[in-house]
Design a protein around this nucleic acid. Structure first.
Length: 828
RNA sequence: GCCGAAGUGGCGAAAUGGCAGACGCGGAGCACUCAAAAUGCUUUUCCGAAAGGAGUGCGGGUUCAAGUCCCGCCUUCGGCACCA
């Protein structure tokens, strides 16, 4: 009808804009970071790479929108930013989907990668598309195998038999870290125990450094993640004490954090499922041996959920064995119970029921003596009915009497050391990382088992050990690896002696893949090395890592371990992989996580079709602090679209020529533009993206007002403001920003235009609003010169009718003057 | 149980110890329009007609001045949890 609606040039059409610029960017490659001789300083910004489980979802949309703000910000600031992406493409879901639908895990995986890649391009992620990788490519996992062998040769990878966590549904072992509250992290099945020989990485060798180096990340990582890591590593300090056992040549060593309470030990407890328990039981009478076996059966049947139930009664049986307390020579009966863990400390404890809750319960259950050795002021535990675990003064403890807890611990260790019966020791909650998986879709171990030679590493020139084709293999979980069925693949000659041998048929935990991928981005296609040492020096560690808090423990801990191990192998010269970390929150719907079963799933593709890419990205940035969860029901992508159209129209209204001299432009608007430039950078660098967006909105409001008001569309300050808006918006809404940039008469590439710093000379204030408070309450305001003196300000304040009324007949006690901003009059 | 974080309008949220609620959503009104949509403008913490008063989870404290600092609670969320 009207000219307006038919003229595409003056209407904001986000979908036409998307179609216009995507091919231009493909040509321009504004985010290519591999150009030889690029003089810009380097910065490495990394988003956690996705698992290709299907198309991108709302969670990805948030993560990549926020990562892009940071990456694009540093590009605008003149840095050569490396912002790569890849796929964490090995793993169970591919295999499960393949089994369910009768597909090849490979086909399923690479189809999803293609789809995600296409969605990322449409979403205008500022990735360097020349650096993509997928961990399921042989060219990638070949280097998993290489690193494994490096670790193996260093003694950091080893095989052992032990009771491992077993998921009966996934039919595979799980790392300690993958067991959540006794359940499989993937499928929520109750995890059981199984004795198996498995590969481990010796993470515990790095426990101290993994813990201590967290201090160097303080302030740059979320404190929540630091505390989760500290909790997980769980260092405790105390002593190891060895007790002689009657009728056994070897003593029993226990770990305790309270060597000061040694005189209060009245019995010992050995973990029921430990080798030691079995050995001691075999030394006991046949009756006790039978009772022990029966008890052990009971213990094995119970799972972690039952075992951890808080109101559960203590159980156990007494062996006919006795230990001798090295402090006072007392005979202590030895018990077996499941409240002592076989794989923590030494698997045996000295029980001090007076000063430990668990020992107290056990003593009560079996009517064992309770002897107080620390006076905490609460009374004698045998009388008051509970253990006193706090600090206090030692009693009934020979040479330790009268000492406080800390002094007694030191003294006890000294006494034990003198007798050769103990020493200071520490222990960790952290266990070695179990990396074997009995599944198909993962990295094969580069190891051949030979009856004559044992474990034989596959020679370097035979790497990679490629996965055999899934065709003809039974991928269904059955407790052993599907690779065992690929007989042509499994049966090989020993590289060492040449006789018939077999490949290791397990595959590596996929967390191995993601523990070093940030280094692989430096040379994703190299067949020469895992990563180049010189480029690692230039680019790594990652300056800014962005991802979900779900990886706060597992992935980050493993990547930190790899970094330290690779450092010690002299491949890199740093010890922490990620200098700064930002954890974005989750996208929810109506108060809970989105899921199909809840019926509250919001499809990203539908949101993009409805509101456009820019509006969704802007909404993600503007919703609130990035680490907070976003409830999609509470935010307004339509509002974001409205704002973008408003900004675009303002750029469209600019009528001055490109390169116009701005110095004589509208002063008020220039000031607004430069206050924006002053405030925007710290907001983005401090991850306050929502505040950054608010600042852009303020500038757009000021721009609109100037165009419609006295300045008019031809004022040079209007152009200056519109260009700054376009550049700032390129962080959040790249399509709209690029189109504004074109409307303003520039060549494509607003992302590289460079966001200037504020001109401080425009920000000098001459007038200011002074506020007058009476007893801390605002009573009046004045426009004053910034040079106003205290006396003038005081006079002004007391001449105000509002102030006079507020003071009334009260006596003025004190007047605080902070010229030129504030006067506070305190009355009596 | 231990450790940690957070509580601000109808909603998402701002606020180096110095004007609480920037910016936005939603609401109300006005302009443009035959009308609507779109757009632009005004208004919007609560109580009160107004003057004014109250107000950042609760109770204390420090300070001329506290959302902000200190002490004690409450609630919510997260992590760890039979780890000796």
């Amino acid at each position: 009808m009207s000219e307006q609606t038919n003229n595409n040039e003056s209407e904001y059409d986000v979908f036409a804009i998307q179609d216009r610029w995507l091919p231009v960017w493909d040509e321009l490659k504004p985010f290519n970071s591999g150009i030889e001789g690029d003089p810009r300083p380097k910065k490495y910004v990394l988003d956690m790479f996705p698992y290709p489980s299907g198309d991108l979802h709302m969670g990805h949309a948030e993560a990549y929108a926020l990562g892009d703000v940071i990456s694009r910000y540093w590009t605008q600031k003149g840095f050569n930013v490396m912002h790569p992406i890849g796929w964490d493409s090995f793993g169970l879901p591919a295999e499960n989907a393949a089994i369910k639908r009768g597909l090849d895990p490979k086909g399923w995986t690479y189809d999803n990668i293609a789809q995600q890649k296409s969605s990322m391009r449409r979403y205008a992620c500022s990735f360097d598309w020349d650096r993509v990788l997928a961990t399921s490519d042989p060219i990638y996992y070949r280097w998993n195998q290489w690193i494994f062998l490096e670790f193996y040769n260093k003694g950091l990878a080893y095989r052992k038999n032990s009771n491992v966590n077993w998921c009966p549904s996934c039919q595979t072992v799980l790392a300690n870290e993958q067991v959540v509250q006794g359940l499989c992290e993937r499928c929520d099945s109750v995890v059981t125990k199984k004795a198996l020989t498995q590969w481990y990485f010796k993470v515990t060798e790095y426990a101290d450094r993994l813990l201590d180096d967290l201090d160097t990340l303080e302030g740059n990582w979320p404190s929540k993640v630091l505390s989760m890591q500290r909790n997980w590593i769980g260092r405790s300090t105390g002593a190891e004490v060895s007790f002689e056992v009657e009728g056994r040549s070897e003593p029993i060593t226990v770990y305790t954090t309270r060597p000061d309470t040694l005189f209060g030990a009245t019995f010992m407890v050995v973990a029921a499922d430990s080798d030691l328990a079995a050995e001691l039981a075999s030394m006991s009478t046949p009756e006790v041996g039978v009772a022990f076996q029966a008890y052990l059966e009971e213990v094995k049947k119970s799972n972690d959920i039952e075992r951890l139930a808080t109101d559960r009664k203590k159980t156990g049986i007494q062996l006919d064995a006795h230990a001798i307390n090295p402090m006072n020579g007392e005979r202590l009966p030895i018990w077996v119970s499941d409240y002592v863990l076989a794989d923590y400390g030494t698997g045996a404890i000295m029980a001090v029921p007076a000063h430990d809750d668990r020992d107290y319960e056990f003593a009560k259950q079996f009517e064992l003596p309770i002897r107080q050795v620390v006076d905490t002021g609460e009374g004698d535990p045998s009388v008051i009915g509970f253990a006193t675990v706090g600090p206090g003064t030692l009693v009934n403890s020979g040479e330790l009497n009268g000492l406080d807890k800390a002094a007694a611990i030191a003294k006890a260790i000294e006494l034990l050391a003198a007798k050769g019966r103990g020493k200071a020791a520490k222990n960790f909650r952290l266990r070695d990382w179990l990396i074997s998986r009995q599944r198909y879709w993962g990295t094969p171990f580069p190891i051949i088992h030979c009856e004559a030679c044992g474990e034989v590493p596959v020679p370097q020139n035979e790497l990679p050990v490629e996965l055999p084709s899934a065709e003809g293999l039974d991928l269904k979980p059955k407790g052993t690896s599907p690779l065992g069925g690929a007989s042509d693949w499994v049966n090989v000659k020993c590289p060492n002696c040449g006789i018939d041998a077999k490949r290791d048929t397990d595959t590596m935990d996929t967390f191995v893949d993601s523990s070093w991928y940030f280094l692989r981005f430096l040379s994703p296609n190299s067949t020469e090395h895992a990563f180049p040492k010189d480029a690692a020096k230039e680019w790594a560690p990652v300056d800014q890592y962005v991802g979900g808090v779900t990886h706060a423990i597992l992935h980050l801990l493993y990547a930190r371990f790899f970094t330290k191990a690779l450092h010690d192998l002299c491949y890199i010269d740093f010890e922490e992989p990620f200098t700064r970390l930002l954890n974005q929150g989750m996208v929810q719907m109506n108060g809970s996580a989105m899921s199909k079963s809840r019926g509250n799933l919001v499809a990203l593709s539908e949101q993009l079709d409805q509101h456009g890419v820019d509006a969704i990205r802007l909404t993600m940035s503007f919703a609130g602090p990035p680490e907070d969860d976003i409830d999609w029901a509470d935010v307004s992508p339509a509002g974001s679209a409205k704002f973008l159209a408003r900004a675009w129209r303002a750029a469209n209204d600019v009528s001055s020529p490109v390169g116009v001299d701005v110095s004589s432009g509208n002063a008020e608007l220039r000031k607004a533009t430069h206050s924006f430039l002053r405030d925007f950078a710290p907001a983005i660098e401090g991850f306050k993206f929502n505040v950054g967006v608010a600042k852009v909105m303020e500038l757009v409001n000021a721009l609109r007002k100037a165009i419609d008001g006295a300045a008019g569309p031809s004022d040079s300050a209007v152009r200056e403001a519109a260009e700054v808006v376009a550049k700032a918006l390129s962080l959040f809404a790249p399509y709209t920003a690029e189109d504004m940039w074109a409307k303003l008469g520039h060549q494509p590439g607003v992302a590289l235009a460079g966001l200037q710093s504020a001109d401080e000379s425009l920000l000098v204030e001459t007038a200011i609003v002074a506020v007058v408070q009476v007893d801390g309450k605002l009573r009046d305001k004045f426009d004053v010169s910034v040079e106003i003196s205290e006396d003038q300000l005081r006079e002004l304040a007391f001449s105000s009718e509002n102030v006079k009324r507020a003071i009334g007949d009260k006596e003025v006690a004190n007047v605080i003057i902070r010229a030129p901003k504030l006067v506070n009059i305190a009355t009596k």
